[in-house]
Nucleic acid binder design. Sequence first.
DNA 1: CACGAACCCTGGCTGC
DNA 2: TGCAGCCAGGGTTCGT
Length: 278
Amino acid sequence: MPELPEVETVCRGLALRLTGQRLVHVEVRRADLRLPMPADFAARLTGRRVERIGRRAKYILIHLDDGAVVIGHLGMSGRLCVLPEDAPPGAPGTHDHVAFRTEDGVRVVYTDPRRFGLLTLTVTAQLGEHPLLKELGPEPLDAAFTAAVLQARLRGRRVPLKAALLDQGVVAGLGNIYVCEALYRARLSPNRQAGTVTDAQAKRLVAAIKQVLSAAIEAGGSTLRDYVQADGELGFFQNQFAVYGRAGEPCRTPGCRGVIERQVQAGRSTYACPVCQK
DNA sequence: CACGAACCCTGGCTGC
DNA sequence: TGCAGCCAGGGTTCGT
């Protein structure tokens, strides 16, 4: 589900409700997520205050007042939701794996039917060296992510451009949807060899990536099935998809007579206009 | 090394 | 209505 814009939206929602709050109760109902949760997860969080919520690529980072950091990932179907204040206590759902409560009664639930997501712990001093984070490429919305940087990372690579952009070590946070959308906006074919991208094309591609991610964040992310924001609201960027999920429909580029095609690359659907993406 | 397929797990949708 | 098959926003591992 969630790519960078969805994770960013969730982080902002959590920050609004959790920053400064002390966790008074943490319940782990299922610890066998993609990675097993640390046995002392609940104990290490209980009594700690949330200092701030950050994000790296598709990882949610919850910084606590003792230097501990919760690393969260939503996988394909994960949600991290703040319950409405008037929500009844009620029995937890089948896939509600972790529940948090703060001293002010704010309740947050981690739900993940497929359990491709994870929640784990590290400390601030080791954050950069954490195995989940240390190989990640640049943040696409950082000013430091430039055409020259992207081109250097693509140089010599013979994989299809789409596969290279999905590689979190090349650029961090893109997933299947936003790679397709960015390639469309940059008018580049998902099939071309990554290393063949020219200066001018890299420039277009970086601009397209930044634009599509920013627009998606502004729209609260994209909701296809599982994704919701931290407050349970849906995202609505899916209404602005130019290619994703539009196989057989006309290309939206003015004057282009192309029809969006779906193909399968490395087992995943790619959508592109064969006419205007070269 | 670099690539693609298989796999992790569950649910929703389609078509018979 | 039931069921088989396919599909899904992510990431890792294992062959070739």
